[in-house]
């Protein structure tokens, strides 16, 4: 049975509370994982593990949180994503909102793409096909 965005959000919220030790009211759709919720690198994997269990889905490596972008010189120049890098990232992350980021694709701002909404979008795509 299809899940509504609200149903998915509530389970994602619970996952964030358990994985990051934050309060549930901190986990809003707009909250960024690293900036607002204090996630560190190992937490991203913890989140992936927990989402897999909680939603009974498989999350292939690099699909929710893409890897092998920042270490590719074709995709990064002078601390910013190149056009090719941006295209690649958008292609790999159809679940993220690039409106702000593409104005200034500074790699230090890339973390802002990882919001609770990003995860909800991704999971919606998985559970509802």
């Amino acid at each position: 049975m299809a899940m509504s965005e609200q149903e998915v959000f509530e389970k994602v919220q619970e996952t964030m509370v358990e994985a990051l030790g934050v309060d549930d009211d901190e986990v809003t759709m707009e909250a960024t994982l690293t900036g607002d919720l204090g996630a560190e690198s190992i937490d991203f994997l913890d989140i992936v593990f927990r989402l897999e269990k909680s939603f009974d889905i498989k999350i292939p490596r690099g699909e929710l949180f893409p890897d092998n972008i920042l270490n590719n010189p074709e995709f990064v120049q002078d601390g910013k994503l190149t056009d090719a890098g941006l295209t690649q990232l958008k292609d790999r992350m159809p679940h993220a909102d690039f409106t702000d980021f593409e104005q200034d694709p500074d790699i230090n701002k890339m973390a802002e793409l990882f919001k609770v909404q990003t995860i909800v979008n991704y999971v919606m795509g998985k559970v509802n096909g």
């Binding site: 190992i42 994997l45 913890d46 593990f49 897999e52 269990k53 490596r61």
Partner: peptide, 10 residues
């Protein structure tokens, strides 16, 4: 053992 990935485990 709950999860096992190439880089980590839970």
């Amino acid at each position: 053992l709950e999860h096992m990935a190439p880089e980590a485990a839970a």
